[in-house]
Computed example of a mutant assay.
Amino acid sequence: MPNPYDRLAELGLSLLTPATPIANYVPSTRVGNLLYLSGQGPRDADGRLMIGKVGRDIGIEDAYAHARLTGLNLLSVAHQVLGDLGRIVQTVKLLGMVNAVPDFADHPAVINGCSDLFVDVLGAAGRHARSAVGMGSLPGGISVEIEAIFEISGAAL
Rank of each mutant, 00 (worst) to 15 (best):
I60S: 07
A65H: 12
R87K: 15
Q90V: 11
A67T: 05
Q90P: 05
A63Y: 03
A67V: 07
D62F: 06
I88L: 09
I58W: 00
L94G: 11
A65V: 08
I88H: 01
R68Q: 12
D84T: 10
A78W: 05
Y64C: 06
L74Y: 00
V89D: 14
T91D: 07
L95M: 14
A78I: 05
V92T: 15
T91H: 05
I60D: 06
G86E: 05
H66T: 08
L74G: 00
Q90G: 12
V89N: 13
H79M: 08
Y64W: 14
L85N: 05
L69W: 04
S76L: 05
A78V: 07
H79G: 03
H79F: 07
L69S: 03
V81M: 05
I60G: 00
G71P: 02
L95F: 13
H79L: 02
A63I: 06
A63H: 06
V89E: 14
Y64H: 14
T70M: 07
Q80F: 07
L82Q: 06
A78Y: 03
K93G: 13
K93C: 13
L95P: 09
I58S: 00
L72E: 03
Q80A: 15
D62H: 11
D62K: 13
R68H: 10
D62W: 02
L94R: 09
D62E: 14
Q80S: 15
T70H: 02
A67E: 02
L69H: 03
I58M: 12
H66M: 14
H79Y: 06
L69E: 05
N73S: 09
L72N: 01
V81H: 11
S76F: 03
N73P: 00
I88E: 01
E61L: 12
H66W: 11
T91A: 13
A63G: 08
L85K: 04
G86C: 08
N73T: 04
G83T: 11
L85R: 04
A63R: 03
R68L: 10
H66L: 08
L72T: 01
R68C: 07
L75A: 03
Q80H: 12
